[in-house]
């Protein structure tokens, strides 16, 4: 398996689609990628760079989408969600309820994938604020194979979507993608507890749980997954940990799971409600927030020995 970035794989597949489908339009807020140069060169009339202007990125994309184009709007994740949240709310969430539009917001830099760039580039609020808007599907893939699969869905589902891509090249979390439309997948089976994670954290969960009897679930359609199938998967499991690269307890993955799995013990793991200014590797930033590999392994250890965990509680 190769190491690849989600955006490169997604954009390469999109480039192919753009050759055959002249209704696909790409809008960037002066944010690039090697494959994007190819899109720009090959489809100059269906690519526009609006400059460093995310509000206008959204508005222009909406205008194009209202006219029937399938639009991809592209920028750094915190900026395409938070700089222009009002535009997303008014012109996408609200308007799309009255006028259908296929608009795909691609945010690159999920969680702390830009760990060295500090709090402006750490994207820890987007899962909760995007999830709270009606009419927008939130896609949070854990690897490039999922990202690639989403290209078809992004064209077929004529609704607004937010694609939360990691910035860093990574190995796939699993060799192949099965039952993609379920919105989640089991990366590891286990009976003592389950970790439900999203994005990069699904890969991390798989790593830290490797030596334990813990199920690892990668949830990538945050508000469009098959809940019944997920519940069936977790039928014999009492304890669930949610794990996300996002602020804890404020409406992200944890809130989704807490509200849906009411008859289980759910432990929520995520970032403390503070910003991290000290720079370092992604793992360093995780450690600063109690989410380092060792922190997680300790927790998993505790959980797989039920008695000791209960005592500690």
């Amino acid at each position: 398996m190769q190491i690849k970035a989600m955006r490169d794989v997604f954009l390469a597949a999109l480039h192919q689609k753009m050759q055959k489908d002249n209704r696909l339009f790409f809008v960037s807020a002066d944010f690039g990628a090697p494959i994007l140069d190819k899109i720009r060169a090959d489809f100059p009339d269906r690519f526009i760079n609006v400059g460093i202007a995310e509000q206008n990125l959204i508005n222009v994309s909406v205008g194009l989408a209202l006219e029937g184009f399938t639009v991809y709007a592209y920028a750094i994740a915190p900026f395409i969600t938070m700089r222009c949240y009002e535009q997303i709310r008014v012109n996408i969430a609200i308007l799309s309820q009255l006028r259908p539009m296929n608009i795909n917001l691609i945010g690159v830099g999920a969680g702390v994938s830009y760990s060295l760039s500090g709090p402006t580039h750490h994207c820890l609020e987007d899962l909760s604020i995007m999830r709270t808007l009606p009419n927008i599907e939130v896609f949070s893939p854990s690897d490039y194979l999922l990202a690639e699969r989403y290209v078809e869905r992004s064209i077929a589902h004529k609704t607004p979507k937010y694609l939360r891509f990691d910035a860093m090249p990574m190995l796939p979390a699993s060799e192949s993608v099965e039952n993609f439309e379920d919105g989640f997948r089991v990366l590891q089976i286990g009976s003592k507890a389950a970790i439900i994670a999203t994005g990069y954290m699904s890969q991390k969960a798989k790593k830290v749980a490797a030596d334990f009897e813990v199920m690892v679930i990668d949830l990538y359609f945050l508000n469009a997954y098959d809940l019944e199938k997920l519940q069936a998967c977790l039928k014999n499991i009492e304890t669930v940990i949610t794990l996300e690269e996002g602020f804890k307890g404020v409406g992200g993955l944890d809130s989704e799971i807490n509200s849906k799995l009411k008859n289980k013990q759910v432990i929520n793991l995520g970032f403390e409600l503070k910003y991290t200014f000290k720079v370092g590797s992604r793992e360093f930033v995780h450690e600063e927030n109690g989410l380092g590999e060792q922190d997680l392994i300790e927790l998993v250890k505790m959980l797989t020995n039920n008695d000791s965990y209960q005592n500690k509680k």
Partner: peptide, 17 residues
């Protein structure tokens, strides 16, 4: 302050079409 940007996108779409 929302209309003009959306109309830019519409105008661009009309030209492309």
């Amino acid at each position: 302050g929302h209309g003009l940007g959306v109309a830019c996108g519409i105008a661009l779409a009309l030209k492309t079409k």
